[in-house]
């Protein structure tokens, strides 16, 4: 009885109008970034640029010095990739042992991980900063990667453990009977079967690390190693009303995430909703 009627068509049109109105900030963002300095100040925010002017992007991408945007992009890529790699490697092997072995210590470890997910991170920030500073892990990418692995490991272990529990043990038993060592059985047989879990961990961790501002601000503060959000914050702080340049940085920071999102939006939406529910 629920059929596509005229009323449904009207509803569809109304939803589209509301959605487009909601996405208006993206339109303003794009047109403003393509305006010249003068046009940014003189024309209306919703007016398209009279001619496409990429000078704001050129200027942003040629910044140099401590808060150079290209360097900060490189730092963000290194830190994000390193964190994802560490979280997949350490998280998957730990979750495998915890999920497959039924000893008392694995159960205790699993609860330790679960409670760590609930535990808010705020209170630990000051001691972590002091600890990292005293061993020289602030202001560099290695310290930042270690910090992220520590912060997000509970999430990674939890996600992998729930996937492992849903996987029959027959795969690795067959591999071991065929002569594989436990290490080979895991890395050649089990981990490749875990591609959906790895994808979810990589998407969630990648988004959190790439978009993070707070932790980078504290743990990389004042150093020459800056991530893109912190460099953006410093760069924007030095500009007054140069909105075409500000928006050029903003767009550059959004492009990698949006590219991945368009490519795998279903996985993003499911991973986000499912992962954060844990």
């Amino acid at each position: 009885m629920f059929r596509y009627t005229k009323a449904t068509a009207v509803r569809e049109v109304i939803v589209w109008i509301i959605t487009l109105a909601m996405l208006l900030p993206f339109y303003i963002l794009i047109v403003t970034s393509l305006k010249s300095d003068e046009e940014t100040l003189t024309t209306s925010a919703v007016a398209p640029p009279s001619s496409l002017d990429f000078s704001a992007f050129v200027e942003v991408l040629t910044t140099t010095g401590r808060n150079s945007i290209p360097m900060s992009i490189l730092n963000s890529v290194i830190i994000t990739a390193g964190s994802i790699f560490g979280l997949v490697l350490l998280g998957s092997v730990a979750a495998y042992v915890i999920a497959r072995r039924t000893r008392r210590w694995t159960t205790i470890t699993f609860y330790l991980v679960l409670i760590a997910i609930i535990l808010p991170a705020q209170l630990g920030t000051v001691p972590l900063y002091i600890g990292a500073r005293s061993v020289g892990l602030t202001g560099n990418a290695i310290g930042m990667i270690l910090l992220w692995i520590g912060i997000l490991l509970p999430l990674s272990v939890f996600l992998y453990a729930s996937f492992f529990r849903g996987l029959s043990t027959e795969y690795e038993e067959a591999a071991v009977i065929d002569g594989a060592t436990p290490t080979q059985a895991f890395f050649r047989v089990v981990l490749p079967l875990m591609a959906p879990a790895t994808g979810t961990v990589a998407i969630l961790a990648g988004l959190i690390v790439w978009n993070d501002f707070f932790n980078s601000l504290i743990f990389l503060g004042g150093s020459t190693t800056q991530t893109l959000p912190v460099a953006m914050y410093t760069y924007v702080g030095g500009l007054v009303s140069a909105w075409n340049k500000i928006f050029a940085v903003v767009i550059i920071s959004m492009i990698p995430i949006l590219a991945f999102y368009m490519f795998a939006q279903k996985r993003f939406i499911q991973g986000f909703a499912g992962g954060l529910k844990g």
């Binding site: 470890t109 209170l123 972590l128």
Partner: peptide, 15 residues
């Protein structure tokens, strides 16, 4: 499981 246990205890519980 050792690296994960050490990191989780250090970063979450001790801190």
């Amino acid at each position: 499981a050792l690296p994960a246990i050490v990191l989780v205890i250090g970063v979450h519980y001790v801190a």
